[in-house]
Design a protein around this nucleic acid. Structure first.
Lengths: 155, 155
DNA sequence: CTTAAAACGTTATGATATAACATCTCATCG
DNA sequence: CGATGAGATGTTATATCATAACGTTTTAAG
């Protein structure tokens, strides 16, 4: 199953929040109201959202209206692997595999901007080999595929 | 050899400009003065540069001072594969393999921001498989590795 | 030589992101 | 308990990245 397939959103939200609570408890990080709500917004909307779009939601909930509010919450969530940044879109998505250690990869539909998460292996493939040859130490990779999702292909 | 190794810059610049002229002649695209100079700047500086940094150089040369001047030239060069955009840095680098058809990948040093170009295979690896399973049609990939380059490791 | 597409110059504005600093909260420990 | 220090927050201001829109100029092709 990919994120392009239909599925139970309510379940996503609950699972995501539970995983976040578990993770934060484990590493003694504080899932404060703003942070929790930021994650919940991303889980509920279930799409890549810009920081200012997230901020608009937070503002409606009375949790803050200035940009740093959103950026700080997003930074925290990204640091803890609960949210990923999609560089191509300058946008953020809730992690689809919360709790599991993984290196995310994304499929981005250029027609509808839908984003699906997959996994990647930083040291594998051409790049891993090139890095080894160059003496470059990979710490993290950004892997994003642009293309057309199944629904948009159908049109 | 990687871009992290020392090499003859003068050669890079000449090769890059020649390849650009050849490519543009072939596809009947116009390598105008602004475009040519933009590519030359990126080749000479031999690093990832922001659009405004490129613009500052163009301005010094009397080739334009407003942002669209730089963005239009960069867009042209990116479209023709003569320059790549590094999404992680919101910056642009001259292509290291001008003329050859290829899918670029980058190694980005988080300490000194140096960027080296490698190649990737869009359909290969985990992501290619995930895309196939999901019915997602990949058109282009963004592959960027963050880490530490050899010189910075030495420190 | 006309003409239509492409390129350019310029102004304005939109979108993304962070610096800086004062204040507040809360877990920890003496 | 109360001090204390790291982390979190609120707020203002500003830095950085990018494009819309529109009139003018250049150029390739008929």
């Amino acid at each position: 199953m990919s994120d392009f397939s239909p599925h139970d959103h309510g379940q996503c939200v609950e699972t995501g929040l539970s995983a976040a609570e578990a993770h934060c408890a484990k590493v003694r990080a504080r899932l404060t109201p703003v942070r929790r709500r930021t994650l919940e917004i991303l889980l509920r909307e279930h799409k890549a959202m810009g920081a200012y779009e997230v901020l608009a939601h937070l503002d409606k909930d009375g949790l803050g209206s200035a940009p740093p509010v959103a950026y700080r919450a997003l930074d925290f969530l990204v640091t803890h692997g609960l949210v990923h940044k999609v560089e191509k879109l300058n946008a953020y998505v809730a992690c689809a595999h919360p709790g599991e250690q993984h290196d995310p990869a994304f499929m981005i539909c250029r027609s509808c901007d839908a984003v699906a998460e997959a996994t990647s292996d930083p040291q594998a493939g051409h790049l891993g080999k090139a890095a080894q040859d160059a003496g470059f130490e990979i710490e993290r990779t950004i892997v994003e595929a642009e293309g057309i999702c199944p629904s948009c292909q159908a049109e």
